[in-house]
Design a protein around this nucleic acid. Sequence first.
DNA 1: AACCTGACTTCGG
DNA 2: TCCGAAGCCAGGT
Length: 111
Amino acid sequence: MESIVMTTPFTQNLIALIKSIPKGCVCTYGTLSKAAGNPKGARQVARVLHTFSEKENLPWHRVVNREGKISLKPHEGYEIQQQLLETEGIIFDENNTIDLKRFLWTPTLLL
DNA sequence: AACCTGACTTCGG
DNA sequence: TCCGAAGCCAGGT
């Protein structure tokens, strides 16, 4: 079940990192891109999720923006993501925000 | 084969 | 502290 994809190391690191996000935790685009080797590659995280979430079976719902909020627009996956996270034990406050102090998972840097 | 755009973040004024 | 502009890069058109 090897899914070798012709892409940059950065992108592959990204995929590996996303896969390693523990259940019940979330991670931000910036944190992931930084850990993958590019502090400003946040947008690529979104690309990766779009392109590989199904192919690589990525836990895409565990990726939120820096504010601890879901980046998807309502009725475009927003509610689905929120539900998936709540199922894993993630709590949303009255502003639909996740307490990152509590749920943010910082990936181990790939050396 | 180019150009546009995006589930973002960071930097500079 | 707030807001516009830049950075990143690959998929879709």
